[in-house]
Design a binder for these strands. Structure first.
Ligand SMILES: Cc1cn([C@H]2C[C@H](O)[C@@H](COP(=O)(O)OP(=O)(O)OP(=O)(O)O)O2)c(=O)[nH]c1=O
Ligand SMILES: [Mg+2]
Length: 470
DNA sequence: GGGTTCTGGACAG
DNA sequence: TTCCACTGTCCAGAACCC
């Protein structure tokens, strides 16, 4: 998204706290971002435990390597920013302002969007069948990795994407429940049946969330977005026993950001909530003004720190401030355009056209990867490749797909990731047609000590004699 | 100049 | 089969093609 760039030293040259932070305070992992369920958590304690359990690991070394690379990129962008001339900045400001004006002229506040997100989804599904788990700290996943945790566990600082052994240290009584995708899929189906009542064309993002254009529903039911959200949550609870949170606003991005601002993903834990952003330009502008840029979907940890480190920007309002002229000069055209639209609170208000999945693959790629105990043995690695290719081929067959571009993914014991791709002479459908290329790619990397191997097929198409599934 | 392929990486859930 | 996952999308930059 972002790219090397230049700088503007005066904005952040001397702004650091005088006291040196303890090393664990400096360890910015994904867990340092507060999330739903984190109220009343001793964040310092959590951060210290995470740091102590990480600091001597290969994983930690790799994180440091990435941090150094990010720092270097930031330094290049600062330099470039500092080198910008007043003439360049003035010209850029004119074009940015023209773009803002034209975006503003086409702002569409006529639609009503709802973003729905299930609360603690995987954990809630398990609690449905085993109610006794509700009062126990529980995490879904294993000792290696946690997918999500219930509210009791979150109070201990346990959260998504946290390795289980660290979570166990934070909360020794933690109960682990293994992943059970068939259950989540079944629950998602029931939830989606409810979503369809409000918008038959709803778009799901993963198993547990969806974007709904409820404009038509509201008109037909003669209700407000707020009332529709309450009704949707009521029907979801009635049909599934699960709770969800909803954001309502004039477009999809705002609907999600509105909920993220104080519900999901916020410091305050508010499950089963709904959040409405009024359809007025003033409301949108004032909401965006103080909204942390990080709350915008697509602005992650890295982009957030680039914006802060290079431009001293942390809110959407600041994105539109004096620094706006630097955006197109420091970031790619697409990134800069995206930042502007996002900061203005502008996003698509219509569903994209549907693709016919009986003709189109319905996806761009399909992959399969596995983590295992460090492995050096070449024969064992080749056997692993065979297994992965077998299961990939089986997955592709289940959707009647064949592909022409195969990628081998390796994660070394050092956590360094390598991908090696090959374009096949013709589309491959069965494992036997994929394996030779995969083995060739693998052998070219040997000797290596691996902790993960994966295979991915792209350039997909539906093969001619594919049966239409149900 | 354009296109394509390959690689690494950000992001999301 | 584990002491930091797995699946999928998109993008930028480099290398290579014409
Ligand atoms: C964030 C995340 C989620 N998941 C899975 C587990 C989650 O239950 C499911 C939905 O993700 P989320 O909606 O991000 O989380 P959640 O539903 O568990 O909790 P919240 O109440 O805050 O919405 O996706 C992962 O497997 N890995 C991840 O890193
Ligand atoms: Mg959720």
């Amino acid at each position: 998204m972002a790219e090397p760039g230049g700088l503007e030293g005066r904005f952040n040259s001397g702004g650091n706290a005088p006291e040196q932070p303890a090393p664990w305070q400096d360890y910015q992992t994904v867990f340092t971002n507060a999330k739903a369920g984190m109220e009343g958590v001793d964040k310092e304690h959590v951060q210290r435990v995470v740091y102590e359990m990480s600091k001597d690991s290969a994983h930690f070394k790799n994180e440091q390597r990435k941090a150094v690379a990010l720092e270097a990129k930031m330094a290049r962008m600062r330099e470039r920013s500092a080198a910008l001339t007043p003439a360049e900045l003035a010209a850029a400001a004119r074009s940015v302002d023209a773009r803002i004006a034209s975006l503003e002229a086409r702002r569409d506040l006529s639609r009503t969007w709802l973003h729905a997100d299930m609360d603690c989804f995987y954990a809630a599904v398990h609690e449905l069948e085993r109610p006794e788990l509700k009062s126990l700290p529980m995490a879904v996943g294993g000792i290696g990795m946690i997918s999500t945790a219930n509210y009791v566990a979150r109070k201990f600082g346990v959260r998504s994407a946290m390795p289980g052994f660290i979570a166990k240290r934070l909360c020794p009584q933690l109960v682990f429940v293994p992943l059970d995708f068939p259950r989540y899929t079944a629950a998602a189906e029931r939830v989606r049946a409810v979503f369809a009542q409000f918008d038959p064309a709803f778009e799901s993002g993963g198993l547990d969330e969806a974007y709904l254009d409820i404009t038509d529903y509201c008109r037909e039911a003669g209700c407000s977005g707020e009332e529709a959200a309450a009704e949707l949550r009521r029907r979801v609870r009635e049909a599934t026993g699960l709770t969800c949170s909803a954001g309502v606003a004039a477009n999809r991005m705002l609907a999600k950001a509105r909920a993220r601002a104080e519900g999901i993903c916020s410091d305050i834990n508010k499950p089963d909530g709904q959040y409405v952003l009024p359809h007025s330009r003033a409301a949108v502008i004032s909401f965006m003004d103080t909204l942390p840029a990080r709350k915008i979907p697509c602005i992650g940890r890295v982009t957030e720190s680039l914006l802060r480190g290079v431009l001293d920007v942390s809110t959407c309002g600041q994105l539109l401030g004096p620094q706006r002229a630097r955006l197109p000069l420091l970031f790619s055209d697409t990134s800069a355009a995206f930042f502007l639209e996002a900061a203005l609170g502008i996003a698509p208000t219509r569903h994209p056209p549907k693709v016919d999945t009986s003709v189109e693959p319905g996806r761009k790629g399909m992959s399969c990867e596995r983590t295992f105990r460090a492995m050096r043995d070449a024969a064992a690695q080749e056997e692993m490749a065979r297994q992965l290719v077998d299961s990939l081929a089986a997955d592709m067959a289940s959707e009647g797909l064949e592909g022409r571009n195969i990628t081998l993914k390796l994660k070394l014991s050092t956590f360094e990731v390598r991908t090696r791709a090959a374009t096949l002479p013709r589309h491959a459908r069965c494992a036997a047609d994929m394996l030779p290329a995969v083995l060739r790619l693998l052998r070219a990397e040997m000797p290596v000590e691996l902790r993960l191997m994966g295979v991915r097929m792209a350039a997909l198409r539906k093969h001619p004699d594919a049966e239409l599934v149900h």
